[in-house]
Nucleic acid binder design. Structure first.
Lengths: 302, 302
DNA sequence: AAAAAAGTGAAAAAAATGTTCCATTCAACC
DNA sequence: GGTTGAATGGAACATTTTTTTCACTTTTTT
């Protein structure tokens, strides 16, 4: 019988390809959500992994356990050991000269990233997200523009919006046709602009053209000096971690996800009443919400 | 009502002297065996603490919980969270704002992001970054491929690498020509692959083709099941924060920046002695370093 | 193409766990 | 010393959770 967590994990990974579809689904969930496996009940895990409860028992049996609980013990033990490891390490770290350890590059970046995230949280008000999501939810088409560094954010946003259902258009500037692409922006659309100093001229031009036509603009930019602020219906000011001239985007990505999730919720709410033009995708969003909203009360009670 | 573990712990300690003998016994056990309290059943805890099961329920009620299970949730949550160095920070984050407001969407995302970043730090070793940077520094051309969600990361990396100087090629798949683009990968080049489940087939195909030709591959992917791991010269396993089915990329972006900065340092070192083929860009990079290294301590102090 | 095997999901059955209740004990107070 | 009130332990009860079963579907084999 498999005893330690690491062995089990390795065996799951190894046998995963040869498992039946449902069991593989369980295997993937187990490897990616070990905390859930350790703490939740079969019913909850089954719901989160989107499998019937019986599959979890079958999974445990397939790996030589008497029942699910027996396997869960391995996960639980790991949880305890892991956290005592951390506790021990922190104690050791405190005792040794803290200054001596030459914080690695990644340490510094993580540290900076955390600080940026915290700042994001303080400088962004829920109403802003709410308003932006409301705008986006009403849009006929969502256009997204961003260049250079901001292009990464733009492409993520357009991908994620597309997943949610709304028609989405990424002004990617292929062939230098950004401004021509901007002509497709209708008056009932919304434009999302991402731009940081030094602001790409083409991005600014797109924003101006849209602004003149009265198209609502949601802006992700970097500080009170941004030329985009006056054009914005809703603006988010971001301060990304910087190291040696490069900015990380990790905060911006976090906000981007917040926008996406908020829009998803908005669409879910509004979609309940009337028929969506893309029922399949809407349904998927609502399924997701149902799935994540259920465990929340338990969470809040605790 | 007491919500967080630290508050609960403090209250137990404070009220301990005024409790009845049996309840005090429970209190002492709870403070000294939080792991048992988190994981065991009432029956087991009762036996270990040498009290009858009902005393445990009375204890929970005495501290304002609906039942023992409600209190146990606090212990369980702590078990998961304490394994993070940033546990304290996250807790502070929770308490700072009126606990009354039901943690906003952004709060939750920021918290999840912080936890992911912390995990990134623990699961990534400096040598990995070092090796990846060494590979990239030697590359004649750096090719970057990633699709869907990962495309955002790929475009950021190719942009940032390009800024540093090396010739960089983003396999963007315009016109569905990804595989043809892959043919340009030379044997002295390096391929950076970013892909998460469900792994885009084209990305995998590119990686395989490059692997067959012996091109070194740097992989950013998501866990032990990734089909990219066997192909990788260096692999980074990432666990991005997830909310309602969307992943944030903010951790991935942080690692991406780490790669970029590490490569920048590497190029700076190597470039000092011999004449670079692109003096202009090298100079720019070094200028940036000089410029940003001064204000950094201020940054670290805040 | 039919039969067998394996996989799957819902729901019933079994087990365990948590909770309540009440008789008993202990200690303080009249 | 008896009475009152809180505290206690254990057993009955209710609930949750796990496991098993079985009808059904899909896949593989003959």
């Amino acid at each position: 019988m498999t005893t330690s967590y690491d062995l089990l994990k390795a065996e799951i990974a190894a046998r995963c390809p040869s498992l039946s579809p449902r069991l593989r689904q369980v295997a993937e969930f187990a490897l990616t959500h070990p905390d859930d496996m350790a703490l939740e009940t079969i019913a909850v895990i089954a719901e989160r992994a989107k499998v019937p409860p019986s599959s979890l028992i079958r999974f445990a049996n397939a790996f030589g356990f008497d029942g699910f609980s027996a396997m869960q013990r391995v996960f639980r033990r790991q949880l305890v050991e892991r956290s005592s490891d951390y506790a021990a390490r922190i104690r050791a770290l405190r005792q040794s000269d803290a200054a001596a350890s030459p914080a690695s590059l990644l340490d510094r970046l993580v540290e900076a990233g955390i600080r940026s995230l915290d700042q994001l949280r303080h400088s962004t008000r829920p109403e802003q997200l709410e308003r932006a999501a409301a705008l986006l939810a009403r849009a006929e088409v969502i256009h997204v523009v961003g260049q250079r560094r901001a292009f990464a954010v733009a492409s993520y946003l357009s991908y994620a919006f597309g997943q949610l259902g709304p028609r989405t258009h990424l002004l990617d500037g292929i062939g230098g046709t950004t401004l021509q692409q901007a002509n497709f922006i209708g008056e009932r659309d919304v434009l999302v602009v991402i731009s940081f100093a030094p602001y790409a001229p083409e991005t600014l031009a797109v924003a101006h053209r849209a602004g003149e036509r009265g198209v609502p603009i949601v802006v992700l930019t970097d500080g009170p000096l941004s030329p985009l602020l006056p054009l914005a219906e809703v603006a988010f000011e971001l301060q990304d971690a910087e190291l040696q001239g490069f900015r990380s985007l990790s905060t911006t990505m976090c906000l981007a996800l917040a926008l996406v999730v908020q829009l998803g919720q908005k669409l879910g709410e509004d979609g309940k009443g009337r028929r969506s033009s893309r029922p399949a995708r809407r349904a998927r969003v609502e399924a997701r919400r149902a799935e994540t909203e259920a465990p929340e009360p338990a969470d809040a009670a605790g």
